[in-house]
Amino acid sequence: MRTHTSRKHPHDDAPDTAAEFDRLAHLPEGAEREAVRPPAEAVKPRLRRLPERERRILYMRFFRDMTQRSIAEDLGISQMHVSRLISNSCERLRREIMQDAA
């Protein structure tokens, strides 16, 4: 059995900076990023509204730098399911933030 060793981060389950959200939301590189970057205060409450498992997966992936495979092993689910949950969660966050900005 493979043991995951990752860096420990003193973060809670929500990012505190726009740079961390960029990683999470996969915003485009370049000048467009500045125009669409949401403030951290727009992201935090939405992250907290996600189901606990999705918050945990996002935390493991983006703050502990765990691979999807490692997350899947830890949670006892497939890597494909982890991938879908990450995609769906990020898309939900992106959609909610963009709707509020419109």
Rank of each mutant, 00 (worst) to 15 (best):
R48V: 04
M66D: 02
R69F: 10
D13K: 14
H26R: 14
R49P: 09
E34P: 06
V43C: 01
D65E: 08
S89I: 00
D74F: 02
E91W: 07
L85M: 14
L85Q: 00
M98I: 12
R94I: 08
K44I: 14
H9V: 15
G30A: 04
L58K: 01
V43T: 02
A25H: 00
Q68V: 05
T67H: 02
S6A: 15
F62D: 05
E96L: 09
P28H: 00
A42F: 08
R61I: 02
R23C: 12
S87D: 11
V43W: 00
P39N: 05
D74G: 06
R2C: 13
E32N: 06
R7K: 13
A40M: 02
R2H: 14
D13P: 11
P10F: 07
A25G: 04
R46N: 06
H81R: 12
P38V: 03
P38H: 07
E52Y: 06
E73C: 05
F62H: 07
R46W: 03
H81N: 14
L75V: 03
H11Y: 15
E29P: 04
A18P: 13
Q79E: 09
R33L: 14
I86T: 05
A31D: 11
S78V: 04
F21K: 07
D74N: 08
F21S: 11
P39E: 06
E32S: 06
T67Y: 05
P10L: 13
P45R: 06
S6K: 09
L50M: 09
P15V: 13
P51I: 03
R37G: 06
D65A: 10
R48K: 14
C90R: 08
R53A: 11
I57E: 02
R64H: 06
L27T: 11
K8I: 15
S83C: 12
K8L: 15
N88W: 10
E91M: 09
R55P: 13
F63G: 01
D65C: 07
L27C: 09
R69D: 10
A25R: 00
T67R: 04
T5Q: 13
Q68T: 09
D100P: 00
C90E: 13
R92S: 05
E32T: 12
D100A: 15
R61F: 06
I97D: 01
R37K: 10
A19F: 07
R95P: 11
D13L: 15
F21W: 15
H81I: 06
T5I: 15
K8F: 15
L58M: 11
K8P: 15
S78Q: 08
A25Q: 04
P28V: 01
A14Q: 10
R46D: 00
K44M: 10
I71Y: 02
E29L: 12
E73Y: 05
I57M: 00
R55L: 07
